Computed example of a mutant assay.
Amino acid sequence: MLEAFLQSLSCVFMLTLLTGAGYWTASRGWYDQTASQLLVRLVNFLSLPCFLFSSVMEKMTHDDLFALFEPMIVPFISIWLVFFASRIFVRIFRIDSLHSGVFSSAFSTSNNMFIGLPVALALFGTDGIVPTLLYFFANTTFFWTMGNYLEAMDGIKADKAQAPKVFSLATVRRVFSPPLCGFLLAIILIILNLRLPEPIMQAAKYMGGITTPLALLFIGLMIYNIGLRNIRFSRDLVLVLIDRFLISPLLCLAFTILMDVPETIAKIYVIQACLPCVLQIAVLAKFHHADVQFATTCVASTTIASAVTLPLWMMALTALY
């Protein structure tokens, strides 16, 4: 228990250090507009597709994929239910239409690869890998389809451009982004029991390894550009915090009990559901010309708050089970 508590604090501290590096270098004038765009393009078009591809290929097998379809239902259902709740919140609380897509992405998706996997390993050892990857599968599928589409719609509203039809080539291009294509390629190869030559796999792994530092440097850059004094705990942000650390894990817990999920997998799923929002919402907001300030604030605030909420949820699950 103590080890898991310290591991969660360690993960949050590591993310804070890398974000701080982005903030510090931005304060020294290292980035102009071109450099900022370069970071976004490197993550979206190169490092993140490689990261998703190499991670899935390395950690999942053909047998894993088919044997775990039933346990995979819980994260899919809980994430989509949280998403539908976010759309209800958008209407009830009249969330700003210029960041309603970012709001739903932050509301629904969690940072389960960069924070969730180390925490699961600390809590459950190697038994935590496969359930975390199952949640990752549901999380990533949602984010790079519905989340990506909604953030793109935010950008279209901000640019006052004409929205594409739901079923159009433009919509397909937005949904089937490079990161999602990298993820789907890995799934297809696993199903077919195929593997690319080892030099290609190693290159993808090395390229994917720069995803987290680049994304965090970008978030630090955005926080500097926004200005720490200008970050406000708006009503929309408070709703995201309530969801990430209360609504989302409670919904997931309810479904694990309802579907009689094994204890270890249930605990891991709930931990994954109460993590900070996924890092890439800020990068994607910049890419689609959406509300970068709100996206960056969501990432920063939920990551900081998780230093308190993660240990609390760990203790609650230990008491429950």
Rank of each mutant, 00 (worst) to 15 (best):
S168H: 10
L221N: 12
K157C: 03
I191L: 10
K165I: 12
I242N: 08
L169I: 13
M222Y: 03
T171R: 09
F255Y: 10
I190S: 02
M259H: 07
N230A: 14
T132F: 11
I247M: 11
S168K: 04
I190C: 04
F136H: 09
M201I: 02
V261D: 01
T264H: 11
L184K: 09
P179Q: 10
I129H: 09
F183W: 11
A215R: 02
V172Y: 13
L241W: 09
R229K: 14
L217T: 12
I191V: 15
L221C: 05
Q202Y: 11
R232L: 12
P164Q: 09
E198G: 01
E198V: 07
R174G: 00
R229G: 15
Q162V: 15
F233A: 10
P213I: 11
I156F: 07
P197F: 07
F218M: 11
I210W: 06
I188S: 10
L150Q: 13
I271Q: 01
R235C: 09
I188E: 01
I271H: 01
F167A: 13
N225E: 13
F233G: 02
S168G: 08
G227N: 10
I242T: 11
Q202H: 14
I257Y: 11
P178K: 05
M146H: 06
F136V: 00
G209R: 02
T145P: 06
L216T: 11
I226S: 04
L246V: 14
D127W: 09
D243C: 15
T126A: 12
G209M: 08
D243V: 06
L134C: 08
L194G: 04
V172C: 14
P249L: 04
M207P: 05
K205I: 00
S234L: 06
N139M: 02
L133I: 05
I188N: 05
L194V: 12
L250F: 04
K157F: 06
L237Q: 04
G125K: 09
G128C: 07
R174Q: 14
F176T: 01
I219H: 07
L214R: 02
K165A: 14
F137A: 10
A163T: 13
T256N: 07
T256V: 15
A215W: 05
S234Y: 01
R244Y: 08
M153V: 05
I190V: 09
M146L: 15
L253R: 06
E151H: 04
L216Y: 04
L246C: 15
T211W: 07
I129Q: 08
G220A: 08
I129K: 11
T211S: 12
F245L: 05
R232P: 03
D243P: 01
T126Q: 14
M146T: 13
F142I: 00
I257G: 01
L216S: 03
D260C: 08
